[in-house]
Simulated scan of single mutants.
Amino acid sequence: MDSLTITAILLGIVEGLTEFLPVSSTGHLVLATEVFGYDPGQWEVFNVVIQLPAIMAVVVLYWSKFMEVAKGLFAGSRDAIAFVRNIIVAFIPSAILGVLLKKKIDAMLETPVIVAWALILGGVAILLIERVAKQGEYRPVENVSVGKSFAIGVMQCISMIPGVSRSGATIMGALSMGVNRRTAAEFSFFLAVPTMFGATAKQLWDHREELAAQSGPVGWSHIAVGSAVSFVVALVVIKLFVGFVSRRGFTPFAIYRIAAGALALVWLMRG
Rank of each mutant, 00 (worst) to 15 (best):
V69H: 02
G243P: 10
G226Y: 00
L175K: 15
V69W: 01
L11S: 01
F253G: 03
N47S: 13
Y38Q: 09
F197G: 06
H28E: 01
L97T: 12
W220V: 15
A254C: 04
V30Y: 06
R182P: 12
I238R: 01
D2W: 09
F189S: 03
R208L: 10
M155A: 15
N180I: 11
G198W: 00
L204W: 06
I55V: 15
I238K: 04
M160H: 06
A70K: 00
S188N: 02
Q214G: 15
A125F: 04
A228M: 14
V164G: 05
Y38L: 15
S167F: 07
L265M: 08
A264L: 03
V58N: 02
A54F: 08
F74W: 12
V132F: 14
I114H: 08
L211F: 13
S227G: 11
H28N: 03
R247K: 15
A70V: 12
S145D: 13
S3C: 00
A32H: 06
W267K: 13
F74S: 08
Y256S: 02
R182T: 14
V233C: 01
G271Y: 09
V193D: 10
G41E: 14
P53Q: 06
V30L: 04
W267R: 13
N143A: 15
F231R: 02
V124M: 00
T33E: 15
T170C: 09
F250A: 06
S246W: 09
T7S: 11
L97C: 13
K104P: 02
P22T: 11
A201V: 10
T183R: 14
F74N: 05
G261Y: 03
N86P: 13
T5S: 08
V179Y: 13
A228Y: 04
G226V: 02
F91S: 09
K102L: 12
L31Y: 05
F20C: 10
T251D: 05
A234S: 11
G198Q: 01
K134L: 10
S176Y: 10
G163V: 05
A259G: 08
V124R: 03
L109G: 04
